[in-house]
Nucleic acid binder design. Structure first.
Lengths: 506, 506
DNA sequence: GTGTGGGCAACATGCCGACAA
DNA sequence: TTGTCGGCATGTTGCCCACAC
């Protein structure tokens, strides 16, 4: 596939991929989530894989990114080279992956039936014309002033369109050349075209993003070699599995990432993940999530309520934060397939802005030491313990004071215990003590008793870690492990029914 | 593929496949040539396979035939079920494989550029119209008398064509509907359409045979799933190889046969093969071969001269008669890719008709005993000797008197020795003594000396077998084996340069 | 401001006899 | 007899404005 794929200007790539896609900066530390990789590459449910991974996430360095487009489907995708990160290997940050510069205007429009009809042209919204076709001479006299535009696609193939500004009232239209374009690209109503103009050169670009929202429609018969075609799923799955295998061994590996509706970025900035996991949260906590509008040109914030944190209690994905949060959305009909999200996808509604960890605060706090970063990163790689898939050791507890300090600076001074029911595999969030922090006021389930459900304890926040570390007295029944700066306790399932406070700790 | 393939009326199938295709009668004994199977299924040169077969041909019984068409390419092909034949298993002959009945008129025409042009119609040759569209009312008054014809394709899909008889001078044309047909079938100039009418029902049929003569043209980009598409070659090759494996073990096996230019039938009537190999021949012998005209509706006889019999002197295909004869054709420019043919494909020019073994003579001779058949068939299966790929034993010499008698009745009383050069892998035919038979008069190379080339001796004719059998005195250097009623001597390569008569025999 | 429909002109398709090989 | 060409009728494409939401 690499042979056939074509390089795309990163800025153009990003505009086509959409605003919800985030490619971390080159050489930055990232978390690689095999679960997300499989979701993105395959149609097999995650549960059906029998992998043996030490942990469900791998801290990596993003060594290289290639921004590509698949000629057969005209869809953009990315290849990323990753390697498991050892802090001593960390290369100097070079934040430029090519898509940060702001040299591009872009406008996305979902094709209307009229746009996609075989006879007609393309109706250019006024805002789009002003933004992209700026500088056209519209004063040419009748009849039908027009000029031809040359717009390049992701393969640098130039398409010529006749642009007219006519009708009563006047409007912008692309006529001659448009039919050839939609036929050639096999576009139908509902697909999205992205019109772009590079500020510096005034070059015009056009990209397309097909409407793959409904997976089981006939649209999947379209020869989208790299995307949904069943024949290629197997191949992609195989690739993903061998990437995971290489990743687990610490070898450098390549992943292919297809931005498309329904799947998430599985290579996520380490900072983002750690921030999200170090933030205080509780059950029924109000959250919001920015979701792309249908034409993915803008984002819209949906609000909802965390009802549970769900994670398998065993197997490969045990205690994985991937899609950990179960959310009930206020507009549940719109957000039907968004019920499971990962912590770094959402923002927390904090009435008191002081409670929201800001990047600036973070930077101050970490200046010179990267306390928070090193804390969790060490956890993901320091363990040689063969017990299970995650670090189940307390070998890093000597670092906790630093992490506690870091957390305190974050003002996450309250902590919560999370109880996993090993049968339902549901983690219940329950607020515990509140020390210095102001509660967010939405925890109306504060007294909800997990009573009969506790067996594995997820502990968010950091004070708990310290307390656990120093308060633990019993052994051998409960396993504890480190997850992103939290100590996680795994109780023996037979202990189910015990009061939380009686859950044994190591 | 079988799932997608569609059954075709055997008579229609045969008309589309062409006159050079011969499917032996059901339950009849046939020879299966793995070489030919690979040629038909794959593009890999035969030499590159590393197979271990006891012999390069397998006597089988044709258990079943399915006449099919591939929906994606609209090409006909056949599936045959075969099983290695033990005489005791021979089922009663039931000669009806469905394609012997003569209930069909057919006419084939290669599409002209005008026929295939997107604008025009199809010009129906007068003979075709008389034969196929017989009974049309051509007396309808002007302007443009016409009537619509319904013609079914190989999938029983009915196409409607407007037939007109017009122009000055008058001619038959298919107009409306024709364009849709050629576009739908993706026909181009050079492809062939076969028009058919069933006599009994007056139903009309249409089949197509694509012009795959030039293999490395763009035409191979056409999605001919079952035929030339590289992706499917591998699959077909794998199927062929597993069929060969099963065949070698004596298990029943299925083969898929694609009639197409450049490859030959690889399941051939046993009688035909045996007849061809028991016929007297010599170097520079005049032969003729019936080759289909380009529209494969008729045959044309080309004449030529056998210059050599070529066969590998070792390996899987040692001494295989498949494409054994090297021929120089009188019209060499037309017959460019026909330089290698199998003996059963050609006829021998015999000025004296008494010398030509006729079927009637054969039947008389074999009545009740099938001497000739059982002779060669036993040879192909009687050996348990592990020495090499063919029978290298003399264990059947007790049967030779019968075979000699059979051969004598065939009046093949002269014999010839064939010398294989183990380096050039070329078998030279040389006439030896002529006893009762009249020479064909073309053997102007009678005195050509193979001198320095002899090492393996192919002996055609049967008297030689007897002579060899009784004259041999030396051992251990030369291996001899039975091939279709001939004893074949393999000399040690180091013996090259010896006079033929000194070649050691077992 | 923008989607859709009807009118209509320009264009493409494909049927025709003429002609020639 | 039949392949191909130019002519021309017919059907289709796609540009245009009007109108509606």
């Amino acid at each position: 596939m690499s042979i056939r794929a074509s390089e795309v200007d990163p800025v153009v790539w990003k505009a086509i991929a959409g605003s919800s896609v985030e490619i971390p900066p080159l050489n930055s530390p990232v978390y690689y989530f095999p679960q997300g990789h499989l979701e993105n590459s395959s149609s097999t449910p995650i549960e059906n894989y029998n992998l043996s991974l030490k942990r469900p996430f791998i801290l990596c360095q993003l060594l290289a990114v290639r921004f590509l487009a698949d000629p057969s489907s005209d869809q953009v995708f990315a290849e990323m080279s990753l390697q498991q990160l050892h802090p001593s290997w960390l290369r100097p940050r070079n934040g430029d992956n090519g898509i940060e510069q702001n040299d591009l205007f872009s406008y996305a429009k979902i094709l209307t039936p009229s746009d996609a009809k075989n006879e007609g042209g393309f109706s250019v919204p006024r805002y789009c014309a002003d933004l992209i076709f700026q500088g056209l001479d519209l004063s040419i006299e009748s009849p039908t002033p027009f000029q031809n535009l040359v717009i390049k696609d992701t393969f640098n193939f130039a398409w010529e369109f006749r642009h007219v500004y006519r009708g009563t009232p006047r409007r912008h239209l692309l006529t001659t050349g448009w039919k050839r374009f939609i036929n050639s690209k096999q576009l139908v109503a509902g697909d999205c075209v992205v019109l772009m103009r590079k500020k510096s050169t005034n070059e015009l670009f056009i990209g397309i993003r097909r409407a793959y929202l409904a997976k089981n429609t006939e649209r999947w018969n379209f020869p989208v070699a790299a995307l949904g075609y069943p024949e290629n799923r197997k191949e992609r799955e195989t690739k993903a599995l061998s990437a995971i295998e290489a990743a687990a061994k610490g070898m450098a590996f390549d992943v292919v990432y297809y931005p498309r509706a329904g799947t998430k970025d599985f290579v996520v900035s380490a900072e983002k993940v750690e921030d999200s996991l170090s933030i205080f949260r509780n059950s029924n906590m109000r959250i919001k999530m920015a979701v792309e509008t249908q034409d993915f040109s803008r984002k819209f914030c949906y609000q909802g309520c965390v009802t549970a944190a769900i994670s398998p209690d065993g197997g490969t994905w045990a205690a994985s934060p991937w899609r950990m949060l179960q959310v009930t959305w206020d507009q549940s009909e719109i957000m039907q397939n968004m019920n499971r999200v990962s912590p770094w996808e959402v923002e927390y509604d904090m009435p008191n802005p002081q409670l929201r960890p800001s990047k600036k605060l973070k930077v101050q706090q970490n200046s010179g030491t990267y306390i928070c970063d090193s804390r969790s990163r060490l956890k993901t790689k320091s363990s040689n313990s063969p017990v299970g898939h995650l670090d189940l050791s307390s070998s890093n507890q000597s670092r906790f004071p630093a992490s506690i300090q870091g957390a305190r600076l974050d003002q996450n001074d309250s902590y919560h215990q999370v109880f996993i029911d090993p049968v339902k595999i549901v983690v219940q969030l329950e607020p515990r003590t509140v020390s210095t922090a102001v509660n967010n006021g939405n925890s109306h389930s504060e007294n909800l008793s997990p009573g009969s459900q506790n067996s594995v304890h997820f502990c968010f926040g950091t004070e708990l870690v310290g307390q656990q570390g120093y308060n633990s007295s019993k052994k051998d029944v409960v396993k504890s492990f480190q997850l992103f700066g939290s100590t996680i306790q795994m109780a023996d399932p037979v202990e189910r029914g015990l009061d939380n406070n009686n859950a044994r700790r190591e």
